[in-house]
């Protein structure tokens, strides 16, 4: 099946020749994944940009794999010639999350790193960017981490408006007023 992926195979060969310690996978048409340890990410991105023509940076994303105690950083770059989306993936330690700063390659990475630093608590040594991005005076667990408990945060932070302490369900009030009964399937969403 892989034989029909001619341009993907070519990219596979180019990357496999240049980097020995990486795992390359042709996932589907116009999508190639490269799994590398974090010290190889910068060289791969630079090589792809300078030598292979992947000059368009699409995305930097972070995924919290809490069960493995790791964060996964995903750099997605694109080439106007081959039209392939190249994913460069790396896993970093969740307890000491640091990653090399890459915003000198594409300046838009600056914004992504600001967000990831704030939302996941990953540090990028040498990175210059305003500390706060979306949140303000945030001192809790970085909120996009899987162990951030949203319900606990809401219960601790917000309160019922005065006069609403009884947490009366609006639907129950309507039911009382109209004389109609709340259907059984909807009762499980009731606050009581």
């Amino acid at each position: 099946m892989k034989t029909s992926f001619i341009k993907e195979e070519l990219l596979f060969q180019q990357l496999a020749t240049a980097f020995e310690n990486v795992v390359i996978e042709i996932v589907r048409k116009e999508t190639v994944f490269v799994y590398a340890s974090k010290e190889f990410v910068l060289p791969i991105l630079l090589y792809a940009k300078e030598k292979l023509g992947y000059n368009s940076f699409s995305h930097l994303s972070c995924v919290d794999w809490i069960e493995n105690d790791e964060f996964e950083l995903v750099y997605i770059i694109w080439s106007p010639e081959t039209k392939i989306n190249l994913f460069v993936k790396t896993r970093i330690d969740r307890q000491n999350p640091t990653m090399e700063n890459t915003d000198m390659i594409w300046r838009q990475i600056n914004t992504y790193q600001r967000e990831i630093r704030e939302m996941f608590g990953i540090e990028f040594p040498g990175f210059v960017g305003e500390k706060e991005f979306i949140l303000e005076d945030w001192e809790d667990v970085p909120p996009m981490r899987r162990d951030f408990d949203t319900l606990e945060y809401v219960n601790d932070t917000f309160f019922e408006r005065e006069g609403r302490e009884d947490k009366q369900d609006v639907r129950e009030r309507i039911a009382k007023r109209s004389g109609e009964e709340i259907p059984d399937f909807a009762k499980k969403y009731s606050r009581e």
Partner: peptide, 20 residues
């Protein structure tokens, strides 16, 4: 299990989602 990047052209430019 898997991941993908879906992208379309909006009026303002490329709009993409990285879905895992």
């Amino acid at each position: 299990a898997g991941s993908a990047y879906g992208k379309v052209e909006s009026v303002r430019g490329e709009f993409g989602f990285h879905v895992v």
